[in-house]
Simulated scan of single mutants.
Amino acid sequence: MNAANFAPWPRDGVVRVHPAPMELPAESDDPGPYRFDDPRRRTQDRFLMRYTASTVRGCLLELLDWMRDDEAAHAREASVEVDDDPGFVDPPSAAGNNPLEAYLLERRVATMTAGSPTVVSIDDPAVQAKLDRENGVRAVLDAKPARDALLEERGHEVHLDNAAVRLASKTGRDLTQACALALYDWPHKPDVIHYRSRHNDTEDCWAIYSHVSVYCVHEVPLSPDIPAHREALESVAKIWDLEIPTDWVAGH
C-alpha cells in the first residue's frame, strides 16, 4: 500500500520549518505528545518522527494554528516544552508585543529527501481498513471518548475513517499514535506516513520515521527576504487574522 492515489512522495523533497530542521527530537522515556509519535513508555525500541509538509505554507498552517484567538488553547500549548510537531507546539517565551514575530525568530527551512521511501497514507481507505483491525487501534476506537467524539449510536461499532484520524482532541492523538505504532510493527514497516493538513486538504504532510536516512537538499533561514516564505506567512496570517511582523510586510 502506498500514497500513490493521494500524493506521491515529492521528487524535489519535503519541507520542515524548525530551529534545527535536520535533527530528530530528543529521546525520552515518556510517550511522545505529537500526532504520530510513539505512545509507549520506557520502550527499548522507540521510534521518533520528523514532521514535514510539501510546502512552507503547509508547515506554517500546521505550526501556527495555536495562535488563533483561544486563551484556553494557549494555556494548554504553554505546557508543551518540545517544539517538533507541526500543529502542536509551545508558544515562544521571547519578549515582544507580537507573538508571531517572536515565534519566527531563528526558524529555518530545510528541504530534505529520503530517496525512494515506502509511503502509506493515513487517508487511504485500504490502509484505514487494515488499521481498523489492529488491536491497539481498536482499543482506542472502542473506548467511550472516541465513541462520543465520533457520535456513535448505541450498538454500532466505530471504524477508522478520515473523521477519526483528523480528531484534534487527546482522543485524536491517542488514535493516530496507535496507528503509527501499528504501522511500525507491520512486517514491512513503512518509512513515511502521508496525511493531509487538518486546515487545508490541498496541503500534504509527511511524518518520517527515525529509521529512515534523510538528506538535506537545501537549508536557509525562514526569512521575509525570500518571497516564497513571505507569501506563505501572509497566506496563513490572513486566514487566522494574525498580525504580520513589520519586517515581513511586503515593501517594508
Rank of each mutant, 00 (worst) to 15 (best):
227 P>M: 06
54 S>Q: 10
79 S>T: 11
13 G>A: 09
63 L>C: 13
95 A>I: 00
57 R>I: 01
79 S>W: 02
27 E>C: 10
135 N>T: 05
102 A>H: 01
21 P>K: 02
81 E>F: 08
134 E>M: 14
246 T>S: 07
126 A>H: 11
202 T>L: 15
51 Y>G: 01
248 W>K: 00
42 R>N: 15
134 E>K: 13
245 P>Q: 02
177 Q>C: 11
52 T>Y: 00
24 L>V: 03
96 G>L: 04
79 S>R: 14
104 L>W: 04
106 E>P: 07
192 V>G: 00
38 D>G: 05
152 E>W: 09
3 A>T: 05
145 P>R: 12
230 R>A: 08
31 P>D: 07
217 V>R: 04
251 G>D: 06
93 S>D: 12
88 F>H: 09
234 E>V: 10
169 S>I: 02
61 L>Q: 07
5 N>T: 05
179 C>P: 07
246 T>V: 08
111 T>R: 14
96 G>M: 02
45 D>C: 11
198 R>L: 12
15 V>F: 02
112 M>A: 08
109 V>K: 02
180 A>S: 15
38 D>C: 08
111 T>P: 08
18 H>Q: 05
122 I>A: 14
239 I>A: 13
219 E>V: 09
171 T>I: 02
18 H>P: 04
172 G>L: 00
224 P>C: 05
89 V>P: 12
39 P>F: 03
175 L>Y: 02
34 Y>K: 09
132 D>Q: 04
235 S>E: 12
56 V>T: 09
165 V>Q: 02
15 V>L: 06
88 F>C: 06
227 P>C: 10
174 D>N: 12
230 R>I: 10
119 V>H: 04
206 W>V: 10
105 L>C: 14
46 R>E: 03
2 N>C: 11
71 E>P: 13
139 A>N: 14
198 R>A: 14
210 S>R: 10
91 P>K: 08
46 R>Y: 05
185 D>G: 13
247 D>G: 15
252 H>D: 10
55 T>G: 10
217 V>C: 11
87 G>C: 10
10 P>I: 04
41 R>F: 10
110 A>R: 05
103 Y>K: 03
53 A>Y: 06
230 R>V: 10
109 V>W: 03
89 V>T: 07
166 R>K: 14
74 H>L: 14
132 D>R: 06
22 M>W: 05
240 W>G: 00
146 A>C: 11
105 L>E: 11
118 T>R: 15
75 A>Q: 12
209 Y>H: 09
125 P>V: 08
158 V>W: 00
180 A>E: 04
28 S>Y: 11
5 N>C: 13
109 V>E: 00
209 Y>G: 02
104 L>H: 06
131 L>F: 05
14 V>H: 03
248 W>S: 01
251 G>V: 05
151 L>R: 13
129 A>K: 11
178 A>E: 02
185 D>C: 14
145 P>H: 09
40 R>D: 09
187 P>K: 00
38 D>S: 03
144 K>C: 06
227 P>Q: 07
29 D>H: 15
78 A>I: 00
182 A>H: 04
20 A>E: 00
198 R>V: 10
224 P>A: 04
102 A>W: 02
73 A>H: 12
